[in-house]
């Protein structure tokens, strides 16, 4: 059996990017009007690689880009449309595990989570009480 030349149609533009952009445009208007956030799961859509590139190019890159090291690398950036965020999570072997476009002020995953804040506050208190040499003022000076 030969597979050498079997094309996967991954290079064809299907028009899906335009549909996704229209949906995002509606979500962005809703965010502007009444702060309702929305998102599009890119993995669930039959986008070809060419569609995906077209979509990424159309949205471009804005002022914020963040890399997270969190059980695999995650890349998050605000597109050149304020409030439209591209979120790409990677898992094993750098493969994309999920990918979405989120229309919101700040993606949830970028905000410090309340449980993490509580744990961090406790940890810092414990470290300060157990080791007096670690003192915030001392390190400033």
């Amino acid at each position: 059996m030969t597979n050498a030349a079997a094309p996967c149609q991954t290079e064809n533009v299907t028009g899906m990017a335009r549909s996704v952009l229209s949906e995002i445009s509606g979500m962005l208007q809703a965010l502007a009007n009444n702060e309702t956030a929305g998102s599009v799961d890119l993995r669930s859509l039959p986008l070809t690689q060419a569609d995906r590139r077209q979509l990424e190019d159309a949205l471009g890159r804005g002022e914020v880009a963040v890399e997270l090291e969190l059980a695999g690398r995650s890349s998050i950036w605000e597109t050149r449309y304020a409030g439209v965020w591209w979120i790409r999570h990677r898992g094993a072997q750098e493969k994309v595990s999920s990918e979405e476009i989120s229309v919101c002020r700040v993606p949830d995953i970028l905000t410090s989570q309340p449980a993490d804040i509580t744990a961090a506050a406790l940890r810092l208190q414990q470290e300060l009480s157990q080791n007096p040499s670690i003192h915030p003022e001392a390190s400033d000076g």
């Binding site: 998102s39 599009v40 669930s44 999570h89 990918e99 979405e100 989570q113 309340p114």
Partner: peptide, 23 residues
């Protein structure tokens, strides 16, 4: 961290075909 939970939840929502907001 809870942030890791959130990342796992985004991945789970995606494979379960749930809206990303379900994360």
């Amino acid at each position: 961290s809870r942030r890791s939970f959130l990342k796992f939840a985004s991945y789970t929502a995606s494979i379960l075909a749930l809206p990303p907001t379900a994360a």
